[in-house]
Simulated scan of single mutants.
Amino acid sequence: MSRTLPNRRSANRALSALALLALTVGAVTACSDHDSTSEHSASSSAGSSASPGTGRAGETRLHMIDNDGHRLAFHVTQGHGSTIVLDAGGGEDSSYWKGLVPKLHAATGATVITYDRPGLGRSDVVPGPWKVESAVSDLKSGLQQLGVTKNVTLVSHSQAGETATYFAKDNPKMLSGAVLVDASLPPLYTDEEIARLAALSRPQVDAAKKDPDKPQNRQLISTAESYVPMHQAYHRATWPDAVPATVIVSEKTPFDGSPEDVQRWRDAATSFAQDGPRRTLVTAKGSSHDIPKDRPDLVLKEIESMVAAQH
């Protein structure tokens, strides 16, 4: 199912060639544009035993979660009933969603959770190559320690689509649905496309190694270390039929200016949507890859619809 939306120019967050490496860094200015502490409440709950139910409705609280030897920052806006988890794309921390969180909470009344992956925002740096298994473990452990074990709507942008796919496969009973926002999806990663994207991104990876302590560079380097085998495996990954999914695909995609890659990205979204039951394809006409910034109204609408469908 495709929906036609008004044509709008992209916001000034054009993706660079860095996007070619599985959307690892998102927008070029991802980390410099956001202050992950500015939009969150200064109040915090120490330790991993805190439950999101300890905060007042509408109040955002910081919970530091321990998992596998490192600490992760989870930001919880307390609501009731279901839980909406927002997972930003590569190179972005939880502040990416700062404009959407209060609107989602007001529209749905649900608890809204954002979090910082390792090395971003307030979360600890974890050295070594990026592993999707570790990303899934971080998300699951954080939710469990917060007392969230069911009725979760997972909203994943860009590279976070990879975490979402494995999370859904391993934990289908935790999820009531997912909204995949111009997400990295398995059908894209043929051997030909993996080789193409890795080669095109090599100059950016080499440049990132000159400033490895910069957060988005650090994540780019860690993803590059495991890129080929990780995406060969990802190409074979499947989404569970039990979890409904809305797939929002942008018109311009991360590869605006490369018609061949644009078509492959859009074909991957179409293939994914058609490959199982309870999946809906929505096209964000005129939008860049940065749909949550270009079309926040659309993202809000689709999340609301997914949450409402589970009641």
Rank of each mutant, 00 (worst) to 15 (best):
Q219L: 12
D170L: 15
K169C: 04
D213N: 15
K214Q: 15
D261C: 12
E260H: 15
T238V: 15
Y227I: 00
L197I: 01
D206I: 06
P254W: 05
D206V: 07
L197C: 09
V155T: 04
V262S: 12
K169V: 00
T246R: 12
A237W: 00
N151L: 05
A160G: 05
D256F: 12
G147S: 11
R264D: 06
P212Q: 03
G147N: 11
T223G: 14
E251R: 07
W239S: 01
P187Q: 06
Q204L: 14
A199Y: 04
I221F: 11
R236H: 12
L139T: 02
K150Y: 09
R264S: 10
V228G: 04
S226E: 09
A164N: 05
E225I: 04
P259N: 10
T246I: 10
A207H: 10
E225Y: 07
K140H: 15
E193I: 14
R202V: 05
G147E: 10
R202E: 13
V243R: 03
W239N: 00
Y234F: 13
G142N: 02
L197S: 08
T253K: 02
S222F: 09
V243N: 05
V152L: 11
G142P: 00
T246E: 06
P186M: 06
M230V: 04
N151R: 13
T223P: 04
E251Y: 05
T246A: 13
S158V: 00
A195Y: 00
I194Y: 03
R218F: 09
M230Y: 07
I248T: 03
S156D: 04
S184Y: 03
A195N: 06
L220G: 03
V247C: 11
K209L: 06
N151Y: 06
V152E: 06
S141E: 12
R266S: 12
L188C: 09
V247I: 13
V247M: 11
P254R: 09
N151E: 10
A208T: 02
Y166E: 10
A199V: 01
K173N: 15
A178T: 08
L200F: 10
D241P: 10
E192H: 13
P172G: 07
M174R: 08
W239L: 02
H235V: 01
D138T: 02
Q159S: 14
Y189M: 04
A245V: 06
V249S: 12
A245M: 07
P187H: 07
A164D: 02
T246Q: 05
P203H: 13
P229G: 06
E192N: 13
S201N: 05
Q204H: 15
V155H: 02
D213C: 10
T246L: 07
D261A: 14
D211M: 13
A199C: 08
A207R: 14
L220E: 01
K209N: 09
V228H: 04
S158F: 04
A168S: 05
A245P: 05
Q219G: 11
R218L: 12
P259W: 08
